[in-house]
């Protein structure tokens, strides 16, 4: 049986590595390893070219973490803390709509979940600390938010709606990591089905009208809990076994 081919949206950004300082198409390996561990084959989808024809070659797609989504998309003023990448926004909003139209299995992670909301007519809170009065969605107290280890993400509970598909995957509660300062305000066509119990920040969304369209606000790729990736590759395998 062939492995489902899973696209990962990626950065095009200035990067330093070794002696190099240059513009690169790139993504942390954690996403790639998570897809491979879940039985898929990962390819990176670069944001420079906003066409959507590449979706025809994929069995599933992950919208990955990254910078903020521009509030221009829902006609709001920019918060001073909002940092956007217009090229990536344009490419991913178009890809998201096309992927949903084609009913391609879609997983949104952090920024990717926010793209789900915005691409379907929703909106975001631009700076959570203004809303909830704390920083626990960004980093655990006393840790260095700039360090690269998984323990540097904030940790909190998520409570899952019992009448959701996410509940079949996660059960009633789970503990997640967290590194974001924006959050879903209006989920658009998606339905919020998981929340942080402390502040009601939306942590899981799903699309009732699609075979598999799940968004999570946390970073499963940086944990050993790969249920989200396994669910995606299983959904993608259904498409992948249709004979050519």
């Amino acid at each position: 049986m062939r492995r489902p081919l899973i696209g990962l949206t990626s950065y095009a950004t200035e990067v330093q590595y070794g002696r190099n300082d240059l513009m690169a198409a790139m993504l942390p390996m954690t996403y790639v390893r998570a897809v491979h561990a879940a039985g898929g084959r990962a390819v990176l989808i670069t944001p420079d070219e906003p066409g959507t024809d590449v979706l025809e070659a994929l069995d599933g797609i992950v919208f990955t973490g990254g910078g903020d989504v521009s509030p221009d998309a829902w006609n709001a003023e920019h918060h001073p803390a909002t940092e956007v990448d217009a090229v990536r926004d344009a490419a991913e909003l178009m890809l998201m709509r096309a992927a949903l139209d084609a009913d391609l299995p879609v997983l949104g992670i952090c920024r990717g979940m926010q793209v789900m909301a915005v691409a379907t007519g929703g909106s975001l809170h631009q700076h959570l600390p203004d809303l909830v009065g704390h920083e626990r969605h960004r980093a655990a107290a006393g840790t260095d938010p700039l360090a690269a280890g998984a323990s540097d993400y904030g940790r909190h509970d998520v409570v899952v709606d019992e009448n959701s598909r996410a509940h079949e995957l996660f059960g009633r509660t789970l503990v997640v990591n967290s590194f974001h300062h924006q959050a879903v305000a209006d989920p658009g066509e998606f339905v919020p089905v998981g929340w942080c119990p402390d502040d009601r920040v939306v942590e899981i969304v799903e699309h009732p009208g699609r075979s598999f369209a799940l968004g999570v606000q946390w970073h499963p790729e940086r944990t050993t809990d790969l249920r989200t990736f396994t669910a995606l590759t299983e959904a993608a395998s259904v498409g992948a076994i249709i004979p050519a």
Partner: peptide, 26 residues
Amino acid sequence: TSYVVPATWGVWRDLPSTLVPHDYVE
């Protein structure tokens, strides 16, 4: 085909990443 290297960008330092110079993509 792409590299796997520790990369530094934005708030991230030396995070194992897969990348190619954007020149190839362009």
